[in-house]
Amino acid sequence: MRNSFILILIVAFGIMLYGLFDAFSGNEQLSELAKYYAQKENIEKVQAANLVTAVVVTYRGLDTLGEVTILFLTAAIIGFFLHNKEEKRFLRENSEIFITAAKLLIPIIILLGVYIFINGHLTPGGGFQGGAVIASAVILMILAFPEREFNSKFFTYLESASGTIFVLLAALGAIIGSGFLDNAIVPMGTFGKLVSAGVIPIIYSFVGLKVGSELSNILGNFKAVQSDN
């Protein structure tokens, strides 16, 4: 009985979505705003080969700032809810193969994450992807060596330091450049090289460190709650 009401509701919602589907006729060309971002002179002004990075860090940089703030808030609330002193508990030994492979792979995965966010303005990737890859290296570390204590203090300091540097670099653009998050406050370099696009790779690297340490802190909190009873 109750499910049939919900079914009617879902069907109504589906009809509404079908209206959207019916009105969509496929894009033949870019929207006006995207055309502005893809113009030659604007690309040469920002100098990021990856236009998604250009949108995330400069044109919509304020959105990114708000986004990392939301992520910080969720990490803080999770830490507040699940904060528990970690206790020793009996755990089955991991197999030798897993531990050896983890020791071999963890530095390589962290290196891959750093590569992804340093090259964010040239190749697919950037701060968010690199941070997620670093967090997956941390989860491998947690799974391989569960008896070691998770050092959440280090990640907290790393996270606050990168967030502060992000805001300071953005504000520096307002002071000596032409506006908040202006990327021309350092020498621009040549298009397509690693040292180019002004302050974009620097800001995106700090975003990567911030996202990686926040996600690692969330994972550490969920690990710590396991031993609490």
Binding site: V56, I70, G126
Partner: peptide, 18 residues
């Protein structure tokens, strides 16, 4: 292709995990 919705989805996925 249009880069703007891709940038929005990029941040939305990370917020979704949080």
């Amino acid at each position: 292709v249009d880069p703007i919705p891709q940038a929005l989805v990029l941040t939305a996925i990370v917020i979704g995990l949080g």
